[in-house]
Simulated assay, not measured.
Amino acid sequence: MKKVIWPGSTQLAPVPAVLVGCGGPGAYNLITIAWAGTVCSKPPMLSISVRPERHSYGLIRESGEFTVNLPTVGQVKETDYCGVVSGADHDKFKETGFTPLAGSQVAAPLVAECPLGLECRVKQTLDLGSHTMFIAEIVAVQVSEEFINAEGRLELERAGLAAYVHGHYFELGGAIGHFGYSVRRKPGPVVRK
């Protein structure tokens, strides 16, 4: 396949479109972030990157806490809205109809309507240029009961999550495999000696 060379740029995609809850009671805010990802398993950690001029930046920097909420395809319009208006001038919870949900370990709000929310405490901050990366430990997870099956397994694939690709939102499709399926042994005939 022939390739074209471009200068280095942020072409990694798709990425999750997440709603980050920040602030405390009476000063809750939401910001849409596409630059978020898992960075460690033990302890469970993730990162988000925020421009210093954003209203949420100061709230996260001051409190050292935030939440990451996974919106569904049906919540994309509200998710987009939270990324284009400033929390300095707008009550995003009120204007979107989202309900703030108290965290169990952090003061930052979760979004009650999102199927999954991660409560996070900042462990490290990296000033990288246009964005500051907040690396945080996930101290609690809140999951909507409807996505937990009878065996207690999370079935988040049923939630209809959205993804972000270079300025556009997309619906995730169906599963095409699972981790390790490429090397899984196929059942074969029993060989008796």
Rank of each mutant, 00 (worst) to 15 (best):
L126Q: 14
V122A: 13
R184D: 08
H90A: 04
T67N: 03
T32N: 03
I33V: 15
V15R: 10
V183E: 08
A175E: 13
M1R: 02
R51L: 01
T38V: 14
C22I: 05
T125R: 08
Y169N: 03
R51V: 04
V141C: 10
Q105K: 15
D127P: 09
G177P: 00
T79H: 09
L161D: 00
V15D: 01
C40G: 12
Y57L: 04
L118D: 08
L19D: 01
V73L: 04
I138P: 05
E146V: 11
V76M: 11
E146S: 08
G152N: 10
V15W: 01
V18R: 04
L12W: 12
G23H: 00
S104R: 15
Y81C: 12
G8I: 09
L118V: 10
A112V: 03
Y181H: 12
I31L: 13
R51Q: 14
L116V: 14
V106T: 04
G180N: 01
I135G: 06
I176Q: 12
P187W: 06
V143D: 10
I176H: 13
N149L: 08
A175H: 01
G83E: 11
T72D: 05
G129E: 09
L110Q: 07
V191F: 05
L154K: 09
H55S: 07
D80V: 06
V106N: 14
T96A: 09
S63R: 11
G188W: 05
F66Y: 13
P25S: 12
V143A: 14
H131Q: 12
E53G: 03
S41P: 00
T38K: 08
C22S: 12
K2S: 15
I138H: 03
V191H: 09
S86D: 06
P25N: 05
F179Q: 06
E137H: 09
S41R: 11
A162E: 14
V73I: 06
E151I: 02
V15Y: 05
V4K: 14
S104E: 15
P25D: 06
H166R: 14
V122L: 13
E155V: 06
L59F: 00
A163W: 02
I33F: 03
G26I: 05
L154N: 03
C22K: 06
E145Y: 01
A27Y: 01
F98T: 11
G167A: 07
V143T: 12
D89I: 04
V191N: 06
A107N: 08
G87Q: 00
A88S: 15
F147E: 04
F98N: 10
F66W: 02
T132W: 09
V4R: 13
A163C: 13
L19Q: 04
R185L: 10
G23R: 03
Q11P: 00
L30M: 04
N29K: 02
Y181L: 03
E171M: 02
T125S: 11
K92S: 04
V111G: 09
L116A: 14
P109E: 07
S9V: 11
V18W: 02
E113Q: 15
P71C: 09
P189V: 02
G177C: 12
N29G: 00
E113P: 08
A163Q: 10
H55V: 05
